[in-house]
Design a protein around this nucleic acid. Sequence first.
RNA 1: GCCGGAGUGGCGGAAUUGGUAGACGCAGGGGACUUAAAAUCCCCUUCCCUCAGGGGAGUACGGGUUCAAGUCCCGUCUCCGGUACCA
Length: 838
Amino acid sequence: MQLTVPARRGNARSCRLQRPSLLLHAMSKYPVGDIETKWQNYWETNKTFKVTEDPAVPPEKRRYILDMFPYPSAAGLHVGHPEGYTATDIYCRFLRMRGYAVLHPMGFDSFGLAAETYAIQTGTHPRTTTEANINTFRRQIKSLGFSYDWDREVSTHKADYYRWTQWIFLKLYERGLAYVAKVPVWYCEALGTVLANEEVLATPEGPRSERGNHPVERRPLRQWMLKITAYADRLLDGLEGLDWPESIKAMQRNWIGRSEGANVRFAMSDGSGDIEVFTTRPDTLFGATYMVLAPEHPLVGKITTAHQRAQVDAYIERAKLKSDLERTELAKDKTGVFTGGYAVNPVNGEKIPVWISDYILLSYGTGAIMAVPAHDQRDFEFARQFDLKIVRVVAHDGEPDDESDMTEATPGEGVAVNSGRFSGLTTLEFKKQIVEWLEEKGLGSKAVNYKLRDWIFSRQRYWGEPIPIVHCEEGFVPISADDLPLRLPEVESYTPAGTGESPLAAVEDWVGVDCPDGSGQRGMRETNTMPQWAGSCWYFLRYLDPQNDKELASREKIDYWMPVDLYVGGAEHAVLHLLYARFWHKVLFDLGVVNTDEPFMRLVNQGMILGEGGVKMSKSLGNVINPDDIVDSFGADSMRMYEMFMGPLEIAKPWSTNGLAGVHRFLDRVYRLSQRPLSDDAPPDNLVRLLHKTIKKVTEDTDTLAFNTAIAQMMIFVNELFKEEELYRALWEPFVLIISPYAPHLGEELWEQLGHEPSVSKVTWPAYDETLTRDEIVTVVLQVNGKVRNRIEVSADTPADELERLALGNDRVQQWTLDKEIVKCITVPGKLVNLVVR
RNA sequence: GCCGGAGUGGCGGAAUUGGUAGACGCAGGGGACUUAAAAUCCCCUUCCCUCAGGGGAGUACGGGUUCAAGUCCCGUCUCCGGUACCA
């Protein structure tokens, strides 16, 4: 998946970014490079982290920990990638040592625009570029010592992978969830192609292509669509049970945008047709004083009077050129034109004018509204702009009765007024009764609307999954699942055809094909390809069974591992990827392919790593940190540990090379400590207690992904050990175990130096003794009126009355209680005594 | 505007069910070692006042609850992320 970092464009050569000069000063006492190479080779040769489906492992001891796989860009790995990957790696290593079977795979989201753009410019096949980039990514990821099971690696552009992406598409098609429709999309004359919304920018000169700054316009073009709206309610309801950040859930809810209301039909006064509107406030029907249609609304032509025709046509022309953005955000003033037509308000028979305006979007609801200016701010502004009638139909406390005094609409709920026999009803009750009334009269009905729209699934591109459909005389004929994969043909040019078709349209001997229905007729292949999102919708299933050529993954393996227990990645995928993947998963669930309705039980977003000084990392600022440079100068363990020490995983935090050096210093200290002669003597009691506290803290914090505080505790422990002459084996061995998920190369090395067989990752995580985690002597705070006046050291089990006696007898305390009456005494054993005086 | 999140030293950040604010690290200061420097080790380091015992203030701001508030409640401000004529 693509991170929203400034991607390098149109240049696939690897480029070394400038090294911060500080890196060159990294001094190291321990042989970082040797150690890290040694253990990476060991893990690779011994397949240390290969995992298989062992039926002896009970289900509650299995975990599927997933990283968002990267889009292999030419720029190589970014410091943002290792953050999430390190977090899951530490967690996985921890879980394994705690006796879990852990599935932890990695792969590549390898279809995408950047490689194709480069192909257009240079003629290099996108596969060549992509696979070179994958090799770089894989090398970089391996250099950080992550414990992936590399035998499960997948890449979405490989035919044995996209075969199953196409298979899922066929299933969607079979179920009526994939269809073709003419929808307005951005078309760029100069580039000869359709552009995605995110490839179009709003500029003062109008909408322009992101690439080349060419003008673009909306054209209704034939596109493949996926009926995600059919799953809107399930996508909404499914969020309830998920352990996801509240913000992501809120964003998905907002994106789906469910709203309840009613559809109401208004007849034209001249009988020229009916206008249907959607409203969430049917209780304000009596306040509907005019209507507005979207400029593209099909009824506009029919109801416009001859007198208004020229103005209306001119307005429609202008609206066409505006982007959605301009029609909404940028437009402060309302614009619109009267059509000359009138509709009849069904509740009171009043004739109300029908206008068109671009504040009404054809794509939402019915593309038409009843305007209630008294209680809707947009309608209010429009009414004031064009001097239309305003009637209040909801009473709120303390409002002026005269509409001419109103300065803004009052959208809240209240009690109905000016509403005939419905007057006096509360908003809630009114809504119920009016819908019943409308249904009785056949004028309308209860309705639900969504902001969510069907997913435009086709791209006029080369580097994507071909859509396995043939256009035959009798219509679309899907390719038989047995004939998949439908491979991408080789092409001579990657440039779009200029007709709004993909480069595939030019490959005549690929496009022309016998119809798969066996009729003997000739047909034409679909030349659109799938969008980049397709491959990432289900990759986590392919990891389960990557070699399977009979099905996308066997049901046994799905049952063994799914659903994903923890999914870590950037918040930039909050809506699209996570919504699309959930949608496909629900379809697969309905098909009986997968075992759960939701794929990802727990989601964590790692925060962005900013440049030094808290600004965004960007090439133009020259503050981009290249992980390769860090690994070269400080080592992978320092890089990993520093990124975890920076702060909580979820928050954005600035990079600091000094901070990195500090963590490196710590690891260096650990190594130097390890070179001291080992002692088998019993260690001092205070250090044993510190060890148990440390094990407890690191255990709990690793379990909750609070890596920064776990590392702080390890630093405290090492600082204390460092002060001792001797290195006690009884303290050192457990410490090597708990640091090993964090600094795995050093962990392996030290474990081996302790005389053990590798790998440390197979050793059981140390236990702690709860009683040893508590201090025997504690500091108790003596307060007078809540202010700390003294501290005393007492045995931890000193009872309350004894503490109270000690407090009252304390001379520093007495200075503050002298001549005062002691009103109250609060004692918290082991913590404090607070004397309240007057 | 709406939704979500966050405001703690010079900086990144700690702080259990309300119970010692500032753990750990960075930066800074002092000392040790060294011919010297680097590296390393030790100590100090929220701010203000101080008779050197301490005292006062302090977790964005203003209130409140409480013996006790960074933590709970009400209001305000700022910043970050998302979204925006969605009828």
